[in-house]
Simulated assay, not measured.
Amino acid sequence: MSENKSGAFLGGVVIGTAIGAVTGLLVAPRPGKETRQFLRKSADALPEIVEDLATSLQLQTGRLSEASQRRWEDTLGRLREAIAAGQEASQRQYDDLVAQEEAPTSDYDN
């Protein structure tokens, strides 16, 4: 799974968990007082959950950034190699043309 897809998956899991928890609370056969206590505890835990999610997203973003940087460096290296190879081939072709022009002509060519 690519890093971008794993980040999206992680976000989907967190959102799905939150939706499931809210739905469970609304459907659960608990008395109102217990439900309110549970909601209060859940609300108290929410900042920690958000902080964990933010940390996970930062890690995913960092990994994606590192992967992009590596791909860019690889591409740049291949581009440099291609340019160098093209320059060498051009120089060889030029040297061959110069050598042909400097080669002595035989009497039969005139």
Rank of each mutant, 00 (worst) to 15 (best):
G77M: 13
W72H: 15
A45M: 03
K41H: 08
T23M: 13
L64E: 12
S6H: 04
Q37D: 13
D95A: 11
T75P: 00
V13A: 06
D52Q: 13
Q58I: 06
Q58A: 12
E66Q: 12
T23V: 14
E88C: 03
I15P: 09
E51C: 09
D107A: 12
D44P: 10
R92L: 05
D74C: 06
V27D: 02
R30C: 03
L76W: 08
G7Q: 13
K41C: 01
Q58D: 13
T35S: 08
G20T: 01
R92T: 02
I15L: 14
P31T: 11
E48Q: 07
A85C: 02
D52P: 05
K41N: 11
G11F: 00
L59T: 10
A99V: 00
A8F: 08
E102P: 05
R71C: 04
L59W: 09
S56P: 05
Y108H: 12
A54M: 07
V13W: 03
E101Q: 08
Q69I: 03
A18M: 08
Q91G: 00
S90K: 06
S2W: 10
E48K: 08
G12I: 01
R63Y: 02
G86N: 06
E81S: 09
V14F: 01
G62N: 13
R70I: 02
V27G: 00
I19A: 13
L64N: 10
P47Q: 01
E48V: 09
A99K: 03
E102S: 12
S90I: 02
A82Y: 06
T61C: 07
S42K: 03
G12F: 01
V27M: 04
Y108S: 15
T23N: 08
G16S: 00
P104R: 05
T61F: 13
A8C: 04
G24N: 09
I83E: 12
D96N: 14
Q37S: 12
R70T: 04
F9K: 09
N4M: 14
S68A: 14
T61G: 14
Q60N: 15
E81Y: 01
S68G: 14
I49Y: 03
N4G: 13
Q58K: 13
L25C: 00
T17P: 02
R92G: 01
A84N: 07
G7H: 06
R36T: 07
R63C: 01
A8E: 13
Y108I: 13
R78S: 10
